[in-house]
Nucleic acid binder design. Structure first.
Length: 419
RNA sequence: GGGUAGGUGCCCGAGUGGCUAAAGGGAGCAGACUGUAAAUCUGCCGUCGCGAGACUACGAUGGUUCGAAUCCGUCCCUGCCCA
C-alpha cells in the first residue's frame, strides 16, 4: 500500500476526527483509512461502510448519532452505507454482564422495530441510499457444521481478551457460552456483506476487530478497518448514555422543548465533548470555546445555551430550537410559566393528594406527601404570581377562579374553576 | 458428583435472631442558592392511610421461634476448587 496521495491523507484526517481508526490507531490508522479511500477512488468502487444495529428497543438517542454523523460524512463522499438489522444477533444481545438468551423476535417485530429505527436514523442519514439487510437472512441458515467452522477461527484465549469477558472472569461473574457467539455472529456479518469499514462505539472494539480477523480467515485480501467513536455520557454526566438508563438519555424523539431542556441539564464539564461529537463545529471554534469555558467571566450557561440550540435545531429546525430556548429562559431562568399547560376540569372539592396522583404528577400518594413536605406544591395565579404554597396534606381544592397548580419544578396544570 | 462461597431495595453494596423498610454510595425527586434543568448544600427516596398504623419486601418454598434478610430443611441459580 505504498504511495498514498496527500489528498487522501487529508481526507482521512478529516474523517478520522474524534475517532479511533484501527488497526494502527493514530497516524497509522489514518493511513489505513487513506489507503482505502484512495483505492476506492482509483477503482471507482465506493467503500462499503457497515453499521449494525439491534432491533430491540427502537429508541435512538444522541449517543447513537455520534456514529451516525460520521457515517453521513462517508455517504456525502459517495460511499455505500450498509445497515445491518440484527434480527439474529438480537436474540443473543451484546454481552454486557447480565445476559440471558432473549426471546426471539418475530420477523414482524424485527421489521417493525427496524422501520422505527430507520425513521429515526433518517434524521441524520440517507436511508434510501443505504443498503439494508437483516442478518437473520444468513445467520439463521447456517448449519451446525458451518457454525463449528466459524467458531474454529478463534480460540478461547482470544475470546477472553475481550475486556468485558476478562473482567467478568476475573471477578468470578458468569459468562455463558452462547455469549461468545455474539461477536462471532457480528464478525460473520462482515464476511457476508463484504464490508470495508465497520463503525461502532469504542465498546465495539473487540467485535469489530474480530470482524476483520474473521474476514481474513475467510480469505478477504483487504479486510475491513474499524472506526470507533467515543461514547457520550448521559445527562447525569457519569454513565454512558444508554437505553438501560432512559432517564439519562436525550432521545431523538424528544420534542424540541424537552431536548433543549435536557441538553441544558448536562453538567458543564460535558459541554466541549458534546460540541465535538454532536455538532459540526470546527477545530478552531472548539479551541475558542475551550478558552471561554476556562474564563471565569464567561458564564458556561451561555455556551450551553448555544450548544443546546445548535443540536436542537438539527432535529427540530431553527424554529423548534428557538421555541425550546424561549421556553427554557422563560420557565427556568425567569421562573415563568410554560406555554402549554394542560387544563384540568373538575378538580374542585378534590383532595390535593388525590389530584396529584390522578394527574400523574406523582406515582403514589406517599410521593405526593413528600413533595408537599418538601415545599414543592404551589398554587399560582394566571400570571405566575404565588397564590399559596400548599403545606397541608388534607388540603381540598376550592376554586373561585382558575388557578395554576405547580408540582415540583416542571409540572404544571391549570385547574379550571367551572365544573 | 464432592467441597466451598454467594443470591439483599432502580443499580452497586453493608447487614448474620429483635434497636431493620433494612448502613453507605450512585441514580431519581424536592428545597436553598445560582444569569443553567450545571456545581454546591440540605431534605426526601416501598405501597396504602390525615394519623396511630397496616401491608408488601432481602432467590423460591416449607419449618423453628413470642419474633427471621439473619437459624434449619428442600429446591432453583451463580462463582471458585476438586473429580
Amino acid at each position: 500500500m505504498a504511495d498514498i496521495r496527500k489528498e487522501f491523507i487529508e481526507q482521512a484526517k478529516m474523517l478520522a476526527r474524534s475517532a479511533e481508526v484501527l488497526p494502527g490507531g493514530g497516524e497509522h490508522g489514518v493511513e489505513e483509512l487513506a489507503a482505502k479511500l484512495q483505492h476506492s477512488h482509483d477503482t471507482g468502487v465506493p467503500l462499503r461502510v457497515k453499521l449494525g444495529m439491534d432491533p430491540t428497543r427502537p429508541d435512538l438517542h444522541l449517543g447513537h448519532t455520534v456514529v451516525m454523523r460520521k457515517l453521513r460524512k462517508f455517504q456525502e463522499l459517495g460511499h455505500k452505507l450498509v445497515l445491518i438489522v440484527g434480527g439474529a444477533t438480537a436474540m443473543v444481545g451484546d454481552p454486557s454482564g447480565k445476559s440471558e438468551t432473549r426471546p426471539s423476535l418475530t420477523k414482524e417485530q424485527v421489521d417493525e422495530n427496524a422501520r422505527s429505527y430507520f425513521e429515526q436514523m433518517g434524521k441524520v442519514l440517507d436511508i434510501s441510499g443505504a443498503e439494508v439487510v437483516n442478518n437473520a437472512d444468513w445467520l439463521h441458515k447456517l448449519n451446525f457444521m458451518e457454525l463449528l467452522q466459524l467458531a474454529g477461527k478463534i480460540t478461547v484465549a482470544q475470546m477472553m481478551t475481550r475486556d468485558d469477558f476478562a473482567k467478568r472472569y476475573a471477578e468470578g461473574k458468569p459468562i455463558s457460552v452462547h455469549e461468545f457467539f455474539y461477536p462471532l455472529m457480528q464478525a460473520y456479518d462482515s464476511v457476508v456483506i463484504d464490508s470495508d469499514i465497520e463503525f461502532g462505539g469504542t465498546d465495539q472494539r473487540f467485535n469489530t476487530l474480530l470482524g476483520r480477523d474473521i474476514q481474513a480467515a475467510y480469505g478477504k485480501k483487504y479486510p475491513q478497518i474499524v472506526m470507533l467513536l467515543p461514547l457520550i455520557e448521559g445527562t447525569d454526566g457519569a454513565v454512558k448514555m444508554s437505553k438501560t438508563y432512559p432517564e439519562h438519555c436525550i432521545s431523538l424523539t424528544d420534542d424540541a422543548k424537552n431536548m433543549f431542556g435536557k441538553l441544558m441539564s448536562i453538567p458543564d464539564t460535558l459541554i466541549l465533548k458534546y460540541y465535538e461529537l454532536l455538532t459540526d463545529i470546527s477545530d478552531a471554534d472548539l479551541k475558542t470555546l475551550d478558552a471561554q469555558l476556562k474564563d471565569a467571566s464567561v458564564n458556561p450557561r451561555d455556551i450551553k445555551l448555544k450548544l443546546a440550540f445548535t443540536i436542537t435545531a438539527e432535529y427540530h429546525g431553527q424554529a423548534g430550537a428557538q421555541s425550546g430556548q424561549d421556553e427554557f429562559i422563560n420557565v427556568v431562568s425567569n421562573k415563568g410559566l410554560p406555554e402549554d399547560i394542560p387544563e384540568v376540569i373538575g378538580s374542585n372539592g378534590k383532595n390535593i393528594l388525590d389530584l396529584l396522583v390522578e394527574s400523574d404528577f406523582v406515582a403514589s400518594k406517599g410521593e405526593a406527601k413528600r413533595l408537599i413536605q418538601g415545599g414543592g406544591v404551589k398554587l399560582l395565579a394566571q400570571d405566575g404570581a404565588l397564590v399559596e404554597k400548599i403545606a397541608d396534606m388534607g388540603y381540598v381544592i376550592n376554586l373561585t377562579d382558575d388557578v395554576i397548580l405547580q408540582a415540583g419544578k416542571r409540572k404544571y396544570a391549570k385547574l379550571v374553576a367551572r365544573n
